[in-house]
Design a protein around this nucleic acid. Structure first.
Lengths: 120, 120, 120, 120
DNA sequence: GTGGTCTAGACCACT
DNA sequence: GTGGTCTAGACCACA
């Protein structure tokens, strides 16, 4: 299974798909000039409609990250890592602010980070 | 202005309102037994429809956080800080995982936390 | 009727809709800050599915030409006339080249232009 | 290379091939009773599938423009120039109307024509 | 009523 | 088999 979708999230499914694929590319689980799963394959795998995946792919193509090859599928072009980085950091900043507002202490956040990145 | 709404977020407006009010309560900007703004007032202030604010208040009441006082408005009952804490930590954990997936380094996250919480 | 669609064209319906709306804006048949017809209204009027119009509007929004207003509709932001101009001139250039290749004479093209723009 | 194909055009590849061949015939780059490239050759040259070229040739044959010669290939029969002319002029007319709608001035179109046909 | 998303299913162009 | 487009119809969030 390539990845899973949270159907109860407020984030639309097509956005989740876009994000997951961007992650895969950054993590080099798919490399440039490689094909990603076909629209139909991925749709079946994650249990969504073909059109939903198609929309994700179409938007990723508009962002210049993948490109359709007629009759063959979608191929990875490349990704602007700085942009992805900045977007995620901004998202991260918002939730840290929100956590601070909720009087969550710094050490509680650090604990989570250590858990995930490994202590040290 | 009490707070602002991101109308182009994927998070529904009524959810944003609920979250902001919870933050206010935890931060003690509104205390127990105090009134929060009337539906009408808040709706006008943040530029949304009455029904939207009404829905937020209704759900907050169902969660036992506020209570309607006939003819007067809504009064703060109290809040289960542990639950709020856990929810936010969980949200935080997800984005940290996502950041790690994107090969964002630990120190980049720590930098953001220091910025917001104050270094050290 | 706002406009009509050529269902036998190779140009996809959603593209035709986008082009027609761009024309309307340039021609000032709809002005900035005015609403264009709702997705459902336009879909019914030109006899296409709601999703098709929705896609057109979504892409026009991505291009910064219109913007969605929650619960109200889509409002015109503005349009980069130079870009539209350049695109159309480029399209025009291609067909002129093609006409020349087909040994169509210059005066035959000029005749068409005079017909449409008014002679002289 | 005989000609090139725009794979991201909305015009189907088999239509593009047909049009290019018609142009070649009108321009007398291939004359009557001469062979055009074999399906296999042309397919390889422009990088499309055999079936696609085959479809183009089949339709050109139906239009009486070329004819298959068993074991040899396809030979040019002739072309109804008036029909080609009318089709192209009609296509031209549409874009001129569209240009006028976009408030493009007559002189801008004339400039393009002069560029391509040579001034005067 | 408005936009936003999604499903199910279809046909076309192309390899 | 692949992508590209479209229809019909549904549910949600919002004014």
């Amino acid at each position: 299974m390539w990845f899973t979708i949270d159907f109860h999230s407020h984030v639309p499914v097509y956005e989740q798909i876009k994000n997951k694929i961007k992650e895969k590319i950054v993590k080099k689980e798919v490399n440039e000039n490689e094909f990603i799963p076909s629209i139909r394959t991925l749709a079946k795998e994650i249990g969504v409609n073909l059109n939903t995946v198609a929309r994700s792919y179409r938007e990723l193509e508009q962002e210049g990250i993948i490109q359709s090859v007629r009759g063959s599928g979608y191929i990875v072009i490349g990704i602007d890592k700085d942009k992805i980085f900045d977007e995620k950091i901004e998202e991260f900043r918002k939730i840290v602010i929100s956590a601070k507002n909720l009087k969550i202490e710094k050490r509680d956040l650090l604990k989570v980070i250590d858990e995930i990145y490994g202590g040290e």
